[in-house]
């Protein structure tokens, strides 16, 4: 700060408080709605102060789900989301770190082609190849399976580039020393590269966990039965019905539960989150 201007400082605080209010308000409304009974949503205005049905709403959703819209109990969908987020983030990190290792520490025919093939995936988001990808997954018999939900998403150019960048900054001498001491490539990978990239792996994990948890289009295509629904997808199914039969208290309880895990990850691992966000954009 260059100089101290009282008015500008006050203005800055005001802007920030309004900003925080803007981002927090939708969540506040959702939280409040999830504490009310169904009758509070029939007419007039949505409630703005907490109600008394918190425990009833959440326990009903966790154990029974919303039968009228065919939504399974929330613990099932939360479990599916967790499986999906963990498989995608761990899968992406695993296959990317070994391919970056191959690209940086080996010279082999076809290396450039492999590198470009991985690069091109950046330009092929699911949205531009919806039908043919769906067909491939269907023909492989992977519809409605955890493999179908996760495997097609685990190729990652961004993660591969990130690890390549990390490996390139690791001093040559480490590898030479390891070789002189008689370490083979895999021993070098496990004992030197992996420990050295620990924080990068953690930062990437935070970003990819959020990415996996929040997937929408892909689960929408691949799941046809309710047993593989993720929670983000489940909300939508419930909201569809809600237009005729408002069960906003239950929907908002689901909304709250759907955002708690990734939001907690961001808040408690903020440093890693920011690191991951900035690194993956290089």
């Amino acid at each position: 700060m260059v100089e101290n201007r009282r008015f500008l400082n006050l203005l800055a605080h005001l802007v920030l408080i309004l900003g925080v209010a803007f981002v927090a308000f939708p969540v506040y409304i959702a939280l409040i709605a999830s504490t009310h009974g169904q009758n509070d949503f029939l007419s007039g205005l949505i409630p703005l102060l907490p109600g008394h049905d918190t425990i009833r709403n959440y326990s009903a959703m966790m154990t029974q789900g919303l039968a009228s819209s065919g939504a399974p109990p929330l613990w099932l969908m939360l479990g599916n989301s967790l499986i999906m987020a963990l498989s995608i983030s761990i899968g992406k990190i695993a296959i990317s770190i070994i391919s970056a290792f191959a690209i940086v520490y080996f010279r082999f025919p076809g290396r450039m082609i492999a590198f470009w093939l991985i690069f091109v995936t950046l330009m092929l988001p699911v949205e531009v190849r919806i039908l043919p990808t769906y067909k491939v997954v269907a023909e492989l018999g992977m519809l409605n399976t955890y493999a179908g939900l996760t495997v097609p998403l685990i190729a990652s150019a961004t993660a591969t580039f990130l690890f390549r960048q990390v490996f390139l900054t690791i001093p040559e001498e480490l590898m030479e020393a390891a070789r002189i001491d008689g370490a083979g490539p895999m021993k070098f990978f496990w004992d030197i590269l992996l420990p050295l990239s620990r924080t990068n792996i953690a930062a990437l994990f935070v970003i990819l966990f959020i990415y996996g948890w929040n997937q929408y289009l892909w689960p929408l295509l691949v799941t046809t039965g309710t047993d593989h629904y993720t929670i983000v997808l489940g909300i939508k199914r419930m909201a569809d019905i809600a237009d005729q039969q408002p069960e906003w208290n239950f929907i908002m309880a689901t909304v709250v539960l759907a955002m708690v895990p990734p939001v907690l990850v961001v808040i408690f691992m903020q440093r890693l989150f920011v690191k991951g966000l900035i690194e993956t954009e290089k």
């Binding site: 981002v23 969540v27 409304i29 929040n214 983000v232 909304v255 990734p262 961001v266 920011v274």
Partner: peptide, 14 residues
């Protein structure tokens, strides 16, 4: 920073 972690579908419904 936390709204980054909220799924677009979830914020849409809110």
């Amino acid at each position: 920073v936390w709204p980054y972690a909220v799924a677009p579908a979830v914020s849409g419904v809110m």
